[in-house]
Structures are given as structure tokens and as C-alpha cells.
Amino acid sequence: MALLFFMAKKSKYLEVGEILVSPEVITEYFACDLEACRGACCVEGVEGAPVAEEEKELLLETLPRVIDTIPPANVDYMTTHGVLYSPAPGAWATMIVDGGRCVFTCNEEGECCRCAFEKCFTEGSQSLFYKPISCHLYPVRTRRTDAGRTILYYDVWSPLCDAAVARGQREGIRIYRFVRSALVRAYGAEWYSRLEEVADHYLSSHE
């Protein structure tokens, strides 16, 4: 398979179908270490998690099924302020409380933070929604080119995710492997297979 490059703003992107992929997604290592970070990405930051327009309806439909998992204070906040907000025209994000905590965050044993949707989905409840794809993809983020093409890039969050980088390096897990299920969910198994081919070619020619 031919390996193609796309020049944009002095950076090289790998072209996988219609998606542009930053080489760091392939070369860098990452694997969440919840024992170290305790799910800090759910409670840190200044904005809520981006929610795609096509996710809104399913998220709202599923919310009543997971509401008992969410702390009462967060439920009260949602009742008063809403579930989602719009940080920019045409964009949506999860509401946050206490300056950074996602309103859907719940605490598990040992005070590890977790998404209530993910908890209910993985524990076999009737949840229909896993969690926002933006969360599922992390540390991969997306943005659009002026021409409307999607770029996937590595969002470096240091020191918050330093333990995840160290674990990825220790266990030999590259970013695109770590987020495989999210990439398949977002773009399909066939696209991910093409990404693997591109990754193998790129790594063999650069290492």
C-alpha cells in the first residue's frame, strides 16, 4: 500500500482514506494508568468533553438509565444548569461542575473517577451509550482542515498523563493500538486495518 503524506502548516500527516493522521499517533506510546492518575482527565481541565451532534440524542436517551450512578450533587447541578452546553456555534460539550469535573463523573472504590455511562455500559446494565467518542479516543483528538478533512493528532497532557506515557513505553503500546476500539467505533474496522498497514510501513521506514 502506498504511503501518502499531506503537507499542512509545515507538518506532515499520514493519509489514511479521507482521514489525516499525525505521525505521533503511530510513533508515540500511551496506555492509561488509572492506579496513578485515578481518572484525573474526568475532573481536570476548563471545558467539558466534546459531544458530537449525532451523539446527543443517544446520550440524552441513555441518561435516565445511568442517573442513579451519578452523585446527587451532580444530578442537582444538571437539573438547574442542564446536561450539555455549547462552547461554540454548532458545538456541544458535557456540562462541568466545580471548575472542571464532568457532570457525568462518578467515583469508584478507592476514589478513582469514572464515566457513569462507561461504568453502566461495561457492567452489563441497560445502558445504550458507551461514552462520548471524544473521551473514548483520548489521547487522540480531532480537528478539521479548512477543506473540511478530519485530522487525528496526539494531545499531550503533561504532567497529568506522564504515567500513561511511561506505562505505554514500558509495555510497548503505541497510541493507535491503545485507542483501537475507539478508532474502529469512529471510522470502522476496514479503516483501522488501513491505518495498521500505513503504521507498519511508516514505522519500518523510520525506525
Rank of each mutant, 00 (worst) to 15 (best):
D33W: 11
V103F: 00
V97T: 10
I19D: 07
A166Q: 12
V51N: 01
L20E: 11
H136S: 05
Y192C: 05
R141Q: 04
S181I: 12
Y77K: 07
V51M: 04
R170W: 05
M95H: 09
L59A: 02
V83D: 01
A36S: 10
G82C: 13
S204G: 07
R144I: 09
C102D: 04
G124N: 10
R170F: 07
A40P: 00
S134L: 02
R114N: 08
F5Y: 15
A8M: 10
R177T: 11
G124L: 07
P64C: 05
A91V: 01
A186H: 09
L137A: 03
G45H: 02
R170P: 08
S22C: 08
E111H: 07
T105S: 05
A36M: 00
E35R: 07
A73W: 00
E108W: 07
E61F: 04
T27I: 11
I70P: 09
E123T: 11
V25L: 10
V46C: 03
A116Q: 09
Y130S: 05
E61N: 14
C120W: 01
H136G: 02
V198D: 06
F121S: 05
R141P: 02
F178A: 04
C161Y: 09
R180I: 04
H81P: 00
I151L: 08
I151G: 08
S22Y: 12
V66D: 01
E108D: 07
A52L: 13
F104Y: 14
C115F: 01
V140H: 00
D200Y: 10
Q126K: 06
H206V: 14
T69G: 05
R144A: 14
Y154V: 14
G172Y: 12
T94A: 08
D200E: 15
S158L: 15
E111C: 03
Q169H: 12
